[in-house]
Write a protein that binds this DNA or RNA. Structure first.
Lengths: 206, 206
DNA sequence: GTCTATAATCAGATAGAC
DNA sequence: GTCTATCTGATTATAGAC
């Protein structure tokens, strides 16, 4: 910091640092999706990235912060996706598109399973400004589409919007995808459409 | 074993043993539902039951077997419930009733979260005869109802029965229930009916 | 079978040289 | 910042007395 004589070199170093941290977070994201927070070990992360464990701790102060960075990354990716959803779509189609995207991310092995129980990760996330801001922004945008779709009469107006929102979030880490994939009877695309159908159309005949 | 002179006393001792093990398994079941397998510690279990940790290991050879016993118990409870579902109900109503029951069990804090990832627990469960038998029996019964409901035209015939089965299983540990409960805006009964509605009727308006 | 005490291991985190 | 080597605490599991 403060070296005003060699801006180019500093910038380069910072670029390398950034790239390294990106690689770390990417690896953490994958492992988080694959095994979950508890089963993921810091040794594993270090080995996968190809650096020593102590070096990891120079970048992130704890395992929780490591995971939090990955969760923040997911939030950012989601926000980017939301930003490019065609405005021409109906509110319901926007929601369907987003749900489809989350499932595709999950099938690609890049959707961290949410810290369902009272883990130490929960506390870290709830204290993380970037994570909470992202979550709020996403919830607001989806919430708007949900209410619009209900006004339009395409989404069941009897459901509280918050319940719809949670249902969509839950579909992003639905174990049904994993089960069907393990069954080996369907392609990824078929699995996505199946779960999308059960989510929006329900199990009942129409 | 083999004491043919004091059958009464032996029976009593076995009864005590059985009761103790029931208490253990019940505690494990609760902790498993509350925190999951990884976060649950054997010390915790021992403390909650009120016996020494070493005593636990006289009953169950490992933490995995402890958890497996709890999972087997859940399977048995499910089979008992299935056995008393009124035969007079339509196939669809049978499925709805079962789904409602699993959600009530979850809200009561007695539904262990499934070992979603490649945990050591998975291996133990897949080698456990009682668990697998129970799972098969349940799947067969539900599978029959699913196909009947599809033939009847009340359940969407376009869905592969296995996908419907997995969807019902997944609803048994749906995080939406926990989320809505944490929100504090709905009673347990309302939460169950909400999720039941989204499951069978879908999010779309009808 | 129950206990106390302890072994054995593993994983998160750190020290200190370079 | 990166490394090797180490510390520390938590956790599964066991030894051995009663």
């Amino acid at each position: 910091m403060g070296s005003s004589d060699k801006p180019v070199k500093v910038s380069f170093k910072e670029q390398m640092l950034r790239a390294r941290e990106d690689a770390i977070v990417h690896t953490v994201n994958r492992l988080l999706a694959e095994k979950g927070f508890d089963a993921m070990t810091v040794d594993e992360v270090a080995a996968a990235v190809g650096i020593a464990k102590a070096s990891l701790y120079k970048h992130f102060p704890s395992k929780e912060d490591l995971a939090a960075a990955a969760m923040v990354r997911v939030m950012r990716r989601a926000q980017e996706y939301l930003g490019q959803v065609p405005a021409s779509l109906s509110p319901l189609d926007k929601l369907r598109t987003v749900a489809r995207w989350t499932m595709e991310v999950q099938l690609a092995g890049e959707m961290p399973s949410l810290p369902s129980q009272n883990s130490t990760l929960r506390a870290t996330l709830m204290a993380n400004r970037d994570y909470l801001d992202g979550l709020m922004a996403i919830s607001d945008q989806l919430g708007g589409w949900i209410e619009a779709a209900q006004k339009e009469g395409t989404l069941n107006p009897a459901l509280p919007p918050i319940a719809v929102l949670y249902t969509l979030y839950a579909r992003a880490c639905d174990p049904v995808l994993e089960f069907l994939k393990a069954g080996g009877q369907h392609t990824d695309a078929q699995i996505v459409e199946l779960v999308l159908s059960t989510c929006f159309d329900g199990l009942n005949a129409r």
